[in-house]
Nucleic acid binder design. Structure first.
Length: 447
DNA sequence: TCTGGGGTCCTAGGACCC
DNA sequence: TCTGGGGTCCTAGGACCC
């Protein structure tokens, strides 16, 4: 327990039934009534149920159909108005930043604050008064949205604290009381323990965090894996020194859509890919990032879900290039029976849009000149020669025929050769400087 | 009329490199 | 020539979170 804090300086704020609360604020007729916000179509799910709706059993992630069955007539079922929630969230986050520069938004309705980075009395009465004041200011600034606050010596304790007294709660866990608070709680209360982990633990009789505390590190890691086991071992001991991190760079950008009815028509599927790639590409471009790995997500009619990805030699943000890769990835999956969902994502992000860090293809296509060694080396020289191949580029090979570049590294290139008709041809990995491999045409997709 | 959409992190196996 | 180990990259899937 090296770096564990001695003062209750970590604050966690969780806005109560946030989407529904914003709707009730903006539509006074909904106040005091059950409100369900989320997808309203046949395949929609609940994003947020107001506390009035929760009384009838409506819950987040439940299908809207089921929520309709549970809730009485007069319940409001509303689609999401994300812009309104975003604006309200920003008001709240600004209030948090008045407390401390160290604010970590976890999601639109949740954040951690490191109070030690502000000038505050960090005694238990001091932070209690601070939290009460904060809650009052949030309610005023947002027009009545409430939040639950937990304060403790770590993120885990603060987060659990904010859950203990919802809604409109305030819980301060005094230093030294962490284990007394944690141990009676079900393991599910710990971040990172979901249904699968809880089930595994239950099978060996571990139900509470106190039960978890009695497990050895070896038993825990063999049960749930190295990283997860080590993390739970520490959390059960309230040994959590994770810092509050202000801005985390996004690691991926994706868009997906569940269709009202399963799709089979190739033209419709292609159009959906285009639309998703456009959403992803324009978000990448707006944020000035691009990424090397394009991932296609497919959910079939039977809900079986798979992903197919391809990592490119260069980062992309152009919707056309993203779509091109996604089209081909889709071409290799079984679409019989129909598709329920398609998704397109880009990961492996770098903060530079294509063309900033890497020269345009037309400028780098020339191989770097190889310095001729005085004596021929026994092994192929790990020389500086670089031949750049572009994913999707059409190529020809005297023996293997025509194909296109699937992926490429600095000194190798993977080519998918087309077989007769629609039969997928062989995939071969060749040296990038293989003289037999030639572009079929000059690259024509350069922006 | 079951089961959204946007993410993060981890694991495991194979390829490849040193 | 044989053997082995470690590290990184890539792919696919799974758990989890809000």
């Amino acid at each position: 327990m090296e770096g564990v804090r001695r003062e209750p300086s970590i604050l966690h704020l969780d806005l109560d039934a946030f989407f529904a609360a914003v709707e009730q604020r903006d539509k006074p007729s909904l106040r005091g009534r059950p409100v369900v916000v989320g997808g309203t179509g046949g395949r929609g799910v609940v994003s947020t149920a107001s506390y009035e709706a929760r009384a009838f059993g409506a819950r987040s992630a439940m299908s809207t159909i089921e929520a309709r069955r549970l809730c009485p007539a007069g319940t409001a079922f509303l689609g999401t108005r994300f812009a309104a929630y975003k604006r309200t969230s920003e008001v709240v986050m600004a209030l948090l930043r008045e407390l401390s520069p160290l604010v970590e938004p976890v999601s639109i309705d949740e954040a951690y604050v490191d109070l030690a980075a502000g000038a505050h009395d960090l005694s238990v009465p001091g932070v209690t008064a601070l939290a009460a004041e904060l809650k009052a200011r949030i309610a005023v600034a947002t027009g009545g949205v409430t939040g639950s606050v937990g304060i403790g010596t770590s993120k885990a304790v603060a987060k659990i604290g904010s859950e203990l007294d919802k809604p409109d709660g305030l819980t301060v866990v005094p230093p030294g009381q962490e284990l007394a608070v944690l141990h009676p709680l079900p393991v599910r209360a710990l971040g990172g323990v979901g249904p699968a982990t809880a089930e595994r633990l239950a099978q060996i009789g571990v139900k509470t965090i106190g039960d978890l505390h009695r497990l050895s590190l070896v038993d825990l890691t063999s049960l749930v894996g190295q990283a997860h086991g080590a993390g739970l071992y520490r959390l059960a001991r309230a040994d959590d020194d994770r810092p509050v991190v202000t801005d985390r760079e996004a690691k991926s950008v994706s868009a997906e859509e569940t269709f009202a009815r399963d799709l089979t028509d190739p033209a419709r599927l292609a159009a959906e890919i285009e639309a998703l790639a456009t959403r992803v590409g324009s978000r990448l471009q707006r944020s000035g990032t691009s990424g090397r790995t394009v991932t296609l997500k497919v959910r079939r009619y039977d809900f079986s879900t798979l992903t197919r990805s391809q990592t490119l030699a260069h980062a992309v943000d152009d919707p056309r290039q993203i779509a091109e890769i996604a089209h081909r990835l889709l071409g290799a999956v079984d679409r019989s029976g129909g598709l329920r969902l398609l998704g397109v994502g880009v990961s492996g992000l770098s903060p530079y849009a294509q063309g900033d860090l890497f020269a345009e293809p037309s400028e780098v296509v020339q191989p770097v000149e190889v310095v001729e060694p005085a004596e021929p080396p026994a092994d192929p020289a790990p020389g500086p020669a670089v031949v750049v191949w572009y994913p999707g580029q059409d190529v020809v090979h005297p023996e293997l025929g025509s194909g296109w570049v699937w992926g490429s590294g600095l000194n190798r290139v993977t080519v998918r050769f087309e077989g007769p008709r629609t039969t997928p041809g062989p995939v071969r990995t060749l040296a990038a400087d293989d003289p037999d491999l030639q572009p079929a045409d000059p690259p024509d997709w350069t922006p």
